[in-house]
Write a protein that binds this DNA or RNA. Structure first.
Length: 576
RNA sequence: CGGGGUAUGGCGCAGUCUGGUAGCGCAUCUGGUUUGGGACCAGAGGGUCGUAGGUUCGAAUCCUGCUGCCCCGACCA
């Protein structure tokens, strides 16, 4: 490709509304353009990267025996009603009506459609297992799209769905997909981690997320310092190492005017956060709120007690049978009803509702709590003596230094971007949509199902998060929009440079390289800056300075310095 | 949806407090000089100041409503 024939649209200045580096660089390099909130156009340069990622994914999926298909983006409501997700999915599902006023949605995922195909197409256990995938645009009406293409509403996803006669076959494919995903991310050149994950709203038994390590990542990952244990902090179990000490202090009510947070409480009392307990009132399972806000069945609120230096883990909390899922905090009025005070002064003493304490909170002694009276707290509190022993559960996020749940080493917390997720769904959807097949004995068996996603467009952003410097993007060769760029110096004045550049351009193309010839009539500095911003991995400079000796200048995007090489060695140099 | 911010040529911003009819840098176009790290000179084009209303002789500026966008929380590939 000739740069003069291609749309290169770089900017020097960083757009004001781009927060993270990948978003800034994608805009500056002209990979994407924003259309509306969460909606981005892929410019020719950016699309080349998307296509390369797709190509790698496609190859590895095919290698793993998956079959590519393409399902409709728009799906009929009936299918979603059948699976129960028409109600369950909520406002993230973009719903629309056709001219006959029939209801549809824009697919955020395709379990329903694929299961419908499975139930119609699959006639015998002999056709199993089968793994179908597609690469397609999805739409999720995210509450808050952000970070450009990293969390957009419309995005490209590779989604695969497998069907099996039993769980063992499903596990086999699940493992195969795990292997295929590693192959994909290895080829792209990402520093990633497969981690144990909560299966979330999609449901099912087992799931593994693939995270690209990056500080801007929205997820916390807990990894062991010695073993290969890795889990999303949402999922990482906390191994309790504390024990309860004997009570030594007297229970004392103190004045704490204006104190609402643990921080303020520490300042006011001189206590450490680890000596304070925070009491969080959340809605319990009996809490049903009507349209007009009135409660039926009586308000049911549950108190969760966490040590002041710990964080509540929503996912763990909502798994508790008494806690409403999804987890929501009690409103101001219910707090007053239950605790006689406002949030910030709540404590577990004297509450007439269930009190569930995190393991470490339950092991505290001589601790500080809210007094259930505004502007007052109580110090020297002890379980069993001052209030009943609570029900104990694992409620908090794992933190740096916690022992690894597998018993080997401690946990380190790193940030990650979720680029892939594989699930053993089991029979959830096949049961709902009645997808079954006769087994060897002729008896109908409900299909076991797995699903496997990769956020193609998110991979592009994540790759940039991990590969950039002050001058711009540093693509790995496998997904770079172009592998090599030829930069002629002063071609307008030098026929020799011009001819040599053209010749090299031809030769590299014949060698099968994805090559860009920067034939724009620009000064060298501008071309260098552009090509570094765009992130082309290899740069070859053709100049009058070196041409008489039949030499060229080569520079790797990641190298500090350029080097002079023989014309004959270009291909070899690029390939090393 | 709740909280905070913001809206002025394609991009980044100033001007708003203290009303007087819009400016800077980058980018673009023309001509010239340049040509190994985002050149220089000369000239040019481009803005109903988000939108609707109000106050006023006069509104980018003051008031009110609406909308877009960004950031913080719940969601997820």
């Amino acid at each position: 490709m000739r740069a003069s024939q291609f749309h290169i649209a770089t900017t020097k200045e960083t757009p004001a509304d781009a927060e993270i580096i990948s978003h800034q660089l994608m805009l500056r390099a002209g990979l994407i353009r924003r259309l509306a909130s969460g909606l981005y156009s892929w410019m020719p340069l950016g699309l080349r990267v998307v296509r390369k990622v797709e190509h790698i994914v496609r190859e590895e999926m095919n290698r793993a025996g998956a079959l590519e298909c393409l399902l409709p983006a728009v799906q009929p409501a009936e299918l979603w009603q059948e699976s129960g997700r028409w109600e369950k999915y909520g406002p993230e599902l973009l719903r629309l009506h056709d001219r006959h006023d029939r209801e549809f949605c824009v697919g955020p995922t395709h379990e329903e459609v694929i299961t419908d195909i499975a139930r119609k197409e699959l006639r015998s256990y002999k056709q199993l297992p089968i793994n179908l995938y597609q690469i397609q645009t999805k739409f999720r009406d995210e509450i808050r799209p952000r970070f450009g293409v990293m969390r957009s509403r419309e995005f490209i996803m590779k989604d695969a769905y497998s069907f099996h006669i039993d769980g063992a076959s499903l596990s086999q494919t699940f493992d195969d997909m795990h292997t295929a995903y590693c192959a994909v991310f290895d080829r792209i050149g990402l520093d990633y981690r497969p981690v144990d994950a909560d299966s979330g709203s999609i449901g099912g038994a087992k799931s593994t997320e693939f995270h690209v390590l990056a500080n801007s990542g929205e997820d916390g990952l807990a990894t062991s310092t010695v073993s290969d244990y890795a889990a999303n902090v949402e999922k990482a179990a906390v191994v309790c190492t504390t024990t309860r000490a004997d009570a030594t202090a007297e229970q004392t009510v103190i004045d704490t005017p204006g104190v609402h947070t643990i921080d303020e409480l520490c300042k006011a009392t001189g206590a450490n956060a680890s000596q304070c307990a925070k009491t969080l009132l959340v809605n319990g399972v009996g809490m049903n709120t009507q349209e007009d806000g009135s409660a039926v069945d009586g308000p049911k609120v549950v108190a969760l007690v966490i040590r002041g230096d710990h964080e509540l883990n929503d996912i763990k909390a909502e798994k508790h049978p008494l806690v409403q899922s999804p987890l929501t905090f009690a409103d101001a009025k219910s707090i007053r009803d239950v605790a006689n005070c406002d949030a910030g002064s709540i404590g577990p003493i004297g509450l007439s509702i269930p009190v569930i304490a995190d393991q470490d909170a339950a092991n505290m002694s001589d601790f500080v709590v809210g007094a259930n009276e505004n502007n007052k707290h109580i110090t020297g509190v002890n379980w069993a003596r001052d209030l009943p022993d609570p029900e104990v559960a694992d409620l908090r996020n794992a933190i740096e230094g916690d022992p690894s749940p597998d018993g080997q080493g401690n946990l380190t917390i790193v940030r990650g971007v979720e680029v892939g997720h594989i699930f053993e769904l089991g029979t959830t959807y096949s049961e709902a949509l009645k997808a079954s097949v006769p087994d060897e004995s002729g008896k109908n068996q409900t299909l076991h199902m797995g699903c496997y996603g990769i956020g193609i467009t998110r991979v592009v952003a994540a790759a940039i998060e991990q590969n950039h410097d002050n001058n711009g993007i540093q693509w790995t060769r496998s997904i770079a929009p172009f592998e090599v760029v030829i930069v002629p110096i002063n071609a307008a004045k030098s026929d020799a440079v011009k001819a040599a550049s053209e010749k090299l351009y031809q030769e590299l193309q014949e060698q099968g390289f994805d090559v860009l010839l920067d034939d724009r009539p620009l000064r060298p500095g501008v071309m260098f800056a552009d090509m570094e911003l765009i992130g082309i991995p290899h740069r070859v400079v053709v100049s009058d300075k070196l041409l008489p000796d039949n030499k060229l200048e080569y520079r790797n995007r990641r190298a500090e310095e350029s080097e002079v090489i023989d014309y004959a060695d270009v291909v070899a140099r690029i390939n090393t």
